[in-house]
Amino acid sequence: MLLTIAGSSCSGKTTAAWAACADMQRLVVHDFDEIGVPSDADRQWRQRSTEAWLSRVLRYQADGVDVVLTGQSPLGEVLACPSATRLEAIAACLLDVDDEFRESRLEERDPGKWDPDAKRSFMAWARWNRGHAGDPGHQPEAIMPGWQEMRWERWSDWTGADPRWAVEIVDTTGRGVQRSAADVRRWVRTARSQFARGHLGLAGD
């Protein structure tokens, strides 16, 4: 199964995922950016690259291995990728942090790199992700139409009340890595258990 952890930059996704899951059996952790990010990356690039990652997840799936994938791709993009329906199961999590902490982390990680406009873009993407996590109908134009191979019709008529649209939210604001990692670990264990018992919304057909 795929356990996808999304969030705007400096939410703490990769750090928390590795701390939470590095010792779990039959599970690997990958960061989306391992494939490299071109300077002109846009939503179409992100969507094509998400499909490439799903193809890789399918190879792990064939070996009985689950994948935790951290990155920028929200649930709606994952579900719309051509290969999404070939996955045995999908579980989604949003790692978030408030704007003040995000800006502080950006400056700590990349001193002087981001101008005010870039920082505002990170904050806006974070706000959009919060809305998307609760409601698939929240400003879909932020990710659509995008790459022509995407299958938006798979979920475009869903509402936030649909049991398939379940996004766990972990807020890392003012919290140490271990506390955030504990929440991620609990989410991973719960999702895997629900899948094993046939109770996961995004599983099977």
Rank of each mutant, 00 (worst) to 15 (best):
L2G: 15
L2M: 11
L3V: 11
L3T: 14
T4G: 15
T4Q: 15
A6L: 15
S8R: 00
S8F: 01
S9W: 02
C10K: 04
C10Y: 00
C10L: 02
G12H: 08
G12F: 03
T14V: 00
T15V: 04
W18I: 02
A19L: 00
C21T: 12
M24G: 13
Q25D: 15
L27C: 14
L27N: 13
L27W: 10
V28Q: 02
V28P: 00
V28W: 04
V28N: 02
I35M: 07
I35N: 06
G36M: 00
G36F: 03
V37N: 07
P38T: 00
A41Q: 05
D42K: 05
Q44Y: 02
R46K: 05
Q47V: 01
Q47K: 08
R48N: 04
R48T: 05
S49I: 02
S49R: 10
T50P: 12
E51C: 08
E51M: 00
R56L: 04
R56D: 07
V57W: 07
V57G: 04
V57C: 06
L58Q: 02
A62K: 10
A62T: 00
D63P: 00
D63I: 00
V65P: 14
V67D: 05
V68C: 12
P74M: 03
P74L: 07
G76M: 03
L79C: 01
P82A: 13
S83K: 03
L87A: 08
E88Y: 01
A89Y: 09
I90Y: 11
I90N: 07
D96T: 10
V97L: 06
V97C: 07
E100Q: 11
R105P: 11
R105Y: 10
E108A: 09
E108M: 04
R109Q: 01
R109S: 06
P111G: 06
P111D: 03
G112L: 01
P116T: 11
D117Y: 14
A118G: 14
K119P: 01
R120V: 06
F122S: 00
W128C: 01
R130Y: 09
R130K: 04
R130G: 09
R130P: 12
G131Y: 01
A133L: 05
A133C: 14
G134W: 09
G134S: 10
G134D: 12
G137I: 02
Q139T: 13
P140T: 00
E141K: 08
E141Y: 10
A142D: 11
A142C: 13
M144F: 01
G146I: 04
G146V: 02
W147K: 03
Q148A: 15
Q148K: 14
E149R: 14
E149C: 13
R151Y: 09
R151D: 14
R151K: 15
R154D: 06
W155C: 03
S156Y: 08
D157T: 12
W158V: 02
R164F: 05
A166D: 15
E168N: 06
E168G: 03
D171E: 10
T172Y: 03
T173F: 08
R175Q: 02
R175L: 01
V177Y: 01
V184Q: 08
R186N: 11
W187P: 14
R189T: 14
A191K: 09
R192L: 11
Q194G: 04
R197T: 11
R197M: 10
R197V: 04
G198C: 07
H199K: 13
L200T: 13
L202F: 15
A203N: 13
G204S: 12
D205P: 15
